[in-house]
Design a binder for these strands. Structure first.
Lengths: 377, 377
DNA sequence: CTGAAAGCGCTTACAG
DNA sequence: CTGAAAGCGCTTACAG
């Protein structure tokens, strides 16, 4: 835990002065630093104005590509800007303007939120699009203490960000309604009585695609490993699951349902529960890939062949799971595109271009090895 | 791909005005919003000063807990601050002061950088500590275009951040030397001729622990799946691997080495190469857990029992891999603690308290099921 | 111990 | 089309 200080061989000229306690911050100068940036004080807009022989207002307008500036002036000033290597101080820009050009991604307080394939894929889309739109991204985790201290509100009130993307929350996270008066968007869920913007995957469509696949393969006794029934999109899947069974003339049993908590271990436990409670189950629909993998692991380790004895379908289409054995048939969620869309729409909202966001992105089924025609007794 | 706009049943009072193209930004007002925050203009330090009957300088000093303010005044002003719900505008604070109180985490341009267990664990530590130190975290990905445009330098020059934590880079990423004059720290690597601060895990110790384990179990023909030999810490492992073999009187063969690219598939391919090239190999040391898992997958699928035929040791101790079958013996890297330490040290550096950072954190071996005593012919 | 004033580096009406 | 000036909301010497 405690950092062990070492001066290993890479250290060239033992520049280790003992830290003399709190002192004045010191500008550390490196002796041998060829090609160093101009060590002069930072260039301000005033310096550029002087050099270009115009007012600071003009430089500002060139910077912001204000069309009121003549083409000739624009080019001339821009050249000076480039030559001087001037970079506007964005604190001053944001203080003067309405915008910070920063967004926050709010993650739930899960231990491994940053190492999660689902969040990661969404974050990837958000990050790429934010970059293209000229926005920076702050990452925040909604820990209890954080919420208690009102840090989520400070994000706006203290002008850290223009908007927040909320990933991985459901209606139980009531603190999110604190943000309803600010630009924010729920990513891959919906709730809040129409007061909160959202973008999510079409879980109903996905569930339909998965059930359609299993029913076509002749399965009738289909179990379901769900999770987080407090989440509207999770309920979508449950509902479609029941509806599709009924449409096929099958009466869904209570004993076909088990909660897998969205985790690998939960999926394994649920598979155990379902298969011991009801020996007739020939297929499992799982609310996400992690639970599907856990279920497969359990099944294989306990003498059920997948897919010969039991077919398994997941949800998410997490990367690197195609390599699992058997590889997983799953509903592909367009998570990257979801991140892109959420970011895009949130920025539009910030710029005042839309009132209310409620987008739904289509899914598709990826057929791999974990499903097959129903076993014959 | 294209967002399909839907107005589903959650939408209450069809507030869907067609977006009329670019217009003036509009403050969207919600009709029914009980318990809404005071819709008055944001409170500034001046308002607080007036209300408390002191100068803005005094309020500022109370805010910053300047000891020059008397206890009585402090308490009185603080009460006014609390009552009014005043939150200082941090853009103004940062513009006036030397600091932004923001750090950036720089990630390499890998497709799944945000969904990576290794990065995620480090990020978790960084994030937690940054929060405690009152710093926000920006996430940046060093894509080629990003570097070309000098965005990494802008991070400082435009005053986005006070410092940058660089995770997952090696000496081939030469753009990092552009940052040597600013507060930055390499996380889990070291390079740059002693000009760059760093904190990394003790890969030499880890390699020693792994080799010690395998040698004690009687293994002599030990293969190694390495990756990124351009990385000094990766070379540490390779060196110790050779040294330990020699110390045990074994002459390491060239054919015992294969590059696994740090990926699952790479690990599988490397295992294939090694086991077909040299049938005598009884153990594999892998540069990370992903490659170890790939190797195990390959071995199991091709008739080698793990650990009975071949023992496998990984590096990282990624979460949820304890559930693999067989579970993985691996060198635990204190990645969370590494993130914490890096963040802590970087902030000290920013505050001018240290000159040069070069910390190394100890590892330990976690013995699980993928290793056993050497097979007898 | 506290206040008045300058300044951080921009943008935005307002003139012309 | 461009400039002078006010202002964004803080902090920091400088006085007293």
């Amino acid at each position: 835990m405690t950092p062990k200080l070492t001066n290993d061989s890479l250290e060239p000229s033992g520049v280790t002065t003992g830290s003399p306690g709190p002192t004045e911050p010191i500008e550390v100068k490196f002796d041998a630093a060829p090609g160093e940036q101009k060590p002069t004080d930072r260039i301000s807009i005033r310096d550029v104005a002087k050099e270009a022989g115009v007012s600071v207002a003009t430089v500002s307008m060139v910077l912001n590509e204000n069309p009121r500036i003549s083409r000739a002036t624009h080019i001339r000033v821009q050249r000076v800007i480039d030559n001087m290597g001037y970079r506007p101080n964005r604190l001053a820009q944001s203080l003067s303007s309405r915008f910070t050009q920063v967004l926050a991604v709010m993650l739930p307080p899960l231990r491994h939120a940053f190492a999660d394939a689902y969040f990661g894929e969404i974050l990837s889309g958000i990050s790429d699009r934010a970059g293209k739109l000229g926005h920076k991204l702050l990452i925040e985790q909604a820990k209890p203490q954080y919420i208690k201290e009102g840090k989520h509100i400070e994000l706006y009130e203290r002008r850290f960000v223009d908007g927040v993307l909320c990933v991985g929350f459901n209606e139980k996270h009531t603190f999110l309604t604190d943000l309803r008066q600010y630009p924010m968007i729920l990513v891959d869920n919906r709730f809040g009585d129409g007061m909160l913007d959202y973008v999510h995957c079409d879980y109903r469509l996905g569930a339909k695609q998965a059930m359609n696949c299993l029913l076509q393969l002749g399965h009738r006794n289909i179990g379901m490993i769900y999770a987080a029934p407090e989440s509207p999109t999770a309920r979508d899947v449950l509902e479609v699951y029941s509806t599709e069974l009924r449409n096929a003339g099958i009466n869904p049993k209570e004993s076909w349902l088990a909660d897998g908590c969205f985790t690998d271990e939960g999926g394994a436990a649920a598979a155990h529960l379902l298969t011991t409670r009801d020996k007739d189950i020939t297929a499992l629909l799982c609310g996400n890939d992690k639970m599907a993998l856990g279920a497969i692991r359990y099944l294989v380790e306990h003498g059920h062949k997948v897919p010969q004895d039991i077919s398994v379908v997941g949800f998410d289409d997490i990367q690197h799971l195609a390599y699992a054995n058997p590889s997983l048939t799953t509903v592909h969620l367009p998570l990257y595109e979801l991140g892109v869309a959420a970011c895009e729409r949130l920025v539009s909202r910030i710029r005042g271009k839309v009132d209310r966001i409620s987008d739904v992105l289509p899914t598709h089924l990826v057929l791999r090895e974990s499903t097959s025609i129903v076993r014959t007794r």
